[in-house]
Nucleic acid binder design. Structure first.
Lengths: 152, 152
DNA sequence: AAAAAATAGTTTGAGAGTCAAATTATTCAT
DNA sequence: ATGAATAATTTGACTCTCAAACTATTTTTT
């Protein structure tokens, strides 16, 4: 009922349609779902930084940049903004004073959990209408899709 | 074999992993796959414009902008660049001189086909490992996923 | 027919995100 | 102790985005 995915279309075409939409809209969709209430000022990119920093303690800039596959210069700018907005702490390491350590503030941790809850909710919502056998097929297909990307 | 998706993980977790990766990396992945050879200078965004203009004749700016869900101002800039790079023609309508008509050049059409081939190849790669019933299940699951996005 | 309103597109100003290359500060190695 | 390597930031340039101002043209109203 969501929109016209009538079964007159062949599966190949339908799949292509769905994937094209997912590709094109996924970031916008996720951003819209995430930027609510307390987290109005968090962009998708901000959220990825928050995710990469993670809940456990601190990480240095190079490590976070590598996780995100961006340059440290790019990350510096993203972290500037997140520090300004109060999601991230930035401190200099005492052992090696070249190193900058970043970590999530309480607000940052709340945003992290907000984000994970969204993902859980999404997964649950998708899975709850599928049988176990169907879930296995979905997993197989998506893993294959990722595999295709990583080798092409 | 692509990466560690061992079956010790429960399916929910695996699915979440895959979706997170697809979310985060899909644009980068697609861009990397598309920007090859002749099409080195085509960004993902450029490709979406090319897709929205389409293979059949001309469209006006407003129509293309609506398809892409961006403002006409944004589209003007994208089209400037695509005209400069030789993928798109821009002409003024004779019937209504306010209207600007855009269409794909030969190079633009080749890029369009390059893009569709990539998608076809991708879909085939995913489907070739699934039985017909599994394909039906996959379609159902993905449609559900898209549905979730469009209503949440 | 003249004036006002509506429409199509471009331009402008501003902000986010990105990279490569230059720069600064610090540590490691010889 | 000097030179090389490393960590991060800064700079300059580009793309993508929007809202709002603007230009040109067409349509509607009076």
């Amino acid at each position: 009922m969501c929109f016209g995915m009538e079964n007159t279309m062949d599966i190949n075409h339908t799949l292509n349609e769905v994937l094209v939409r997912l590709f094109r809209d996924i970031n916008m969709i996720e951003e819209r779902a995430l930027r609510t209430g307390e987290y109005k000022d968090v962009t998708t990119n901000d959220m990825h930084v928050i995710e990469a920093i993670g809940m456990e303690g601190t990480k240095n800039m190079t490590k976070v940049a590598r996780l995100m596959e961006v340059t440290t210069g790019t990350l510096t700018i993203a972290v500037n903004s997140l520090v300004r907005k109060g999601y991230v702490y930035r401190t200099r390491s005492e052992e090696d004073r070249r190193v900058v350590l970043v970590s999530l503030s309480e607000k940052g941790k709340r945003a992290y959990l907000h984000h994970s809850k969204f993902h859980e909710h999404m997964i649950d919502s998708v899975l709850e209408e599928l049988t176990e056998e169907e879930q296995v097929v979905l997993e197989k297909a998506l893993t294959k899709l990722l595999c295709f990307f990583q080798t092409n």
